[in-house]
Nucleic acid binder design. Structure first.
Lengths: 196, 196
DNA sequence: AAGATTTTGAACACTGTGTTGATGAAGTTA
DNA sequence: TAACTTCATCAACACAGTGTTCAAAATCTT
């Protein structure tokens, strides 16, 4: 077998690094994290770190890439029924939000004070094509440029919603948040008129 | 007069630093910018830099703080007429967007590949109280929690819109973008139904 | 012109980087 | 089990950048 994934030692080492990294990332921004302290906290040799990563930024990138793969997998599941664009958009949102809750450990760090605030943006951009297709399928006479702007607004808006959600400890269920996002996306400020 | 603002030398020095800094920030992330190269490009002594800033991060923070003050000033102007919440929200948006266009040099860098993506978020949070007041004045029976979530969505959505706007070279006018934001905020996906 | 303030240039100790080579430990294959 | 391969460790190294200091030169203020 190849050396990449089969060796127990490598996996253990990477786990230690990852655990120490996320721990440090809760206390300080990545620019303040040195390879030295990371390795000391992880209990591994500094040279070992350099055998796997170029620097702490490459480490972060690799972690992010891993979660993105999970996302793609979640999105690739064929939507159950999705009768129209609205249904499929909400479907996609709920799936994404659930995925975030499943990976809450990383997401909390990323959305925290010292995380990569643009990380969720990268994630949601994965769903961009899927959503744009859904929109253009439904709004056949909308200009592509307007759809782009709408998606820019809405995807970014979801990130803001998610950030607040995480700040509140993810108390609400993923479905609740997805429905809140749905109502805002569908009705805008009319959101408030829907309450009885 | 105090030494802070009256001395020509200080202002020139800070201008050189700022110019060099934004120039570097177009090519690489802030973590990759050293005080050395910054000073070399600015044509000043390294010691002089440390006389004014602790490090490059403090420099960035100071630049951001300066623009935030401009923002506060722009927001403090009493709204012309603002008949209702909708009018005042749009009014606020247009004012903010104009401010961004006025400071486009910095904003382009901030929204670019290596800028502080959260910068605009900090800016818009300044308008938070103003907007929340406008909302709650209009939607007297809405729950505070829902208003918070709505604002989280909408403010973040505006950032996404602005980012796309900047990416396209700010070709459209600030008013155009503000109106686009308005329509999305008011009607959500119904945005597309408004076209004739 | 006199005095205060700022910039400069050089030096300094110091922290962290990224790499190397030898050694032992752990995994893999025959 | 034995032979082989891969990986982690440790110490050492040159190097880049940091943050500070000081005397001297330049510039501003009055």
């Amino acid at each position: 077998m190849k050396s990449s994934s089969g060796d127990h030692r490598v996996r253990v080492t990477k786990m230690m690094i990852r655990r120490a990294f996320t721990e440090l990332l809760q206390k300080k921004p990545i620019q303040g994290i040195t390879v030295q302290e990371l390795c000391k906290l992880a209990g591994i040799n500094r040279g070992t770190f350099y055998a796997h990563y170029q620097d702490v930024y490459a480490l972060l990138e690799q972690i992010e890439r891993g979660m993105m793969d999970d996302f793609r997998q979640a999105l690739d599941q064929p939507d159950g029924q999705a009768r129209d664009a609205r249904g499929s958009v909400v479907d996609i949102c709920a799936r994404i939000f659930q995925c975030i809750k499943d990976n809450s450990d990383i997401c909390v760090v990323m959305l925290g004070d010292y995380g990569d605030k643009d990380f969720l943006g990268k994630l949601l951009s994965i769903g961009k094509e899927t959503c744009l297709n859904a929109y253009s399928r439904y709004f056949t006479d909308a200009k592509p440029r307007e759809i782009e702007y709408f998606y820019a607004f809405v995807s970014s808006g979801c990130i803001g919603l998610l950030r607040l959600w995480v700040q509140e400890g993810m108390a609400a269920s993923a479905m609740e948040i997805a429905q809140m996002a749905e109502r805002i996306m569908l009705s805008g400020i009319g959101f408030f008129d829907q309450k009885a």
